[in-house]
Simulated assay, not measured.
Amino acid sequence: MANQGAKKRREENTRHMNNLFRIIIVSNAVYILLRAGFFYSTFTWLHWIGLIITSGAYYLCYKQLESMAKPAYTDDGELLDGGFDMSTGGACGYLHDVIYITCFVQLTSIISGKFWWIYAVIPAFAAYKGWGLIKGFLPSGSEGIGEDEKTRKKREKMEKKASRGKFVKAKGR
């Protein structure tokens, strides 16, 4: 019964990574089969570049997720940790988003090359998140501005009210 949670997470991660691998393989196969096979007359060198870019995005994201999902074992082979929980947000969620957006762009670009513009969402979102991070380190310009009398009095009143303890009436028995 020991390490049941770790064993369960290892199995979930293995199943999840296998599903992601299938999605990636099917997307690439459909793209190559339809775009390079069926619509061969319109398949140009730009499409090869697109295939290389999407394959690179798949590879980088999948390898990062694979390293996160890798379980940890002791020297004698006992399971210590089942790996990172793939259902959490943060970097893991962003990597999943990149894989799913890449899949969408790759499959819809079979219909029209204009769908490649959707791929611009990824660097735009990264710039948005990065700007929020950078902005936190920059000094804010409002420190030198003094507050007016009304705002100061209101703030002092709220601070005084917050510093007083709250009294709770207890019912007598």
Score class of each variant (00 low, 15 high):
157 K>N: 03
59 Y>L: 11
4 Q>H: 14
127 A>D: 10
160 K>V: 10
63 K>G: 12
138 L>I: 11
84 F>I: 11
152 R>P: 06
61 C>Y: 05
104 F>C: 09
127 A>N: 09
111 I>E: 15
67 S>I: 02
73 Y>H: 00
99 I>N: 05
142 S>I: 15
94 Y>G: 12
76 D>I: 00
138 L>S: 09
47 H>D: 05
172 G>S: 08
151 T>M: 01
67 S>M: 03
5 G>P: 06
10 R>W: 12
26 V>L: 13
25 I>C: 10
122 I>D: 03
76 D>V: 00
173 R>N: 02
150 K>M: 13
104 F>A: 08
90 G>S: 05
142 S>N: 13
94 Y>H: 14
137 F>H: 14
83 G>D: 04
22 R>M: 12
65 L>K: 01
169 K>R: 06
93 G>W: 04
155 R>K: 07
58 Y>G: 03
53 I>P: 00
29 A>D: 10
100 Y>F: 14
63 K>N: 13
71 P>Q: 04
102 T>M: 07
109 S>Q: 01
116 W>Y: 14
115 F>D: 02
111 I>R: 15
58 Y>E: 05
43 F>V: 05
14 T>E: 11
53 I>V: 05
10 R>Y: 11
156 E>F: 05
164 R>Q: 15
19 N>H: 13
115 F>V: 02
168 V>W: 07
136 G>L: 08
145 I>V: 05
32 I>V: 14
160 K>G: 07
8 K>N: 13
59 Y>I: 12
102 T>S: 09
41 S>R: 07
134 I>V: 15
120 A>V: 11
116 W>E: 08
75 D>S: 09
76 D>Y: 01
153 K>D: 12
72 A>R: 00
14 T>L: 11
70 K>E: 06
130 G>R: 10
93 G>T: 06
102 T>K: 07
70 K>S: 05
114 K>G: 15
11 E>A: 11
70 K>F: 01
104 F>Q: 11
157 K>I: 08
73 Y>G: 01
37 G>N: 01
7 K>H: 13
99 I>H: 04
68 M>S: 13
